[in-house]
Amino acid sequence: MNVVLRQALIICAKDLRMELRSREVVLAMAYFGILVVLIFSFAFPVFSGAVSREQVVAGILWISITFAGTLGLQRAFEREREGDCIRALLLSPVPRPSIFLGKVFGMLLFMGVLEAVVLPAIFLFFNVSLPLDGFLVLALTIALGTVGYAVVGTLFAASLLRARSKDILLTIMLFPIILPVLMAGVKATSLILLPDGSQAELWVWVKVLATFDIIFTIVSLWIFEILVLD
């Protein structure tokens, strides 16, 4: 027993030494912790007064999309790396934007399935009723948010293809950039769910999402060429 413990301590000391040299894990964890606080403070905006049940539901919806999305992003490019499939893609006579957009479309489909599962679950568990005419707007809001998320996420996942510690870095890069999507998504969703939500304000947030999508798609297409090609 003594031996087991002593050896365990030696191994622990080794880990500690490695961490003290690179400070990779602890810094990344602390940083991620701060990000989560930030994300939750926007998903559940207690700072703007009492939070209604509709707002909580909206927050849970967008947080589950945000977190589950990273699983998809990590896997989507891990597959390309295994067997060096990405090299074959890049060598094939296909315009570069097609590769990027193709990966984005794939991500959109995966996330669509995720949302189709999460959305009914949330309405079921939290006993929130969705006004029928609100469904289309909600679908539009989620679609716009998902496009922004998938575009930025795909670009970052692609750029990290050959990088070290890519799993840590993906969330660290993606979450702060995706905050406006989360903010706008949560706000719009709760306005749709609230019986007396302001329609004018709702459309402002939908426009924020659309603008985010347009600008970041353009920037991503430009940066993808540079980041992934050589």
Partner: peptide
């Protein structure tokens, strides 16, 4: 952090 951890392509990323 990317610069520190990502390795060879860190500058671009």
């Amino acid at each position: 952090m990317v610069r520190g951890y990502a390795g060879a392509e860190a500058k671009k990323i």
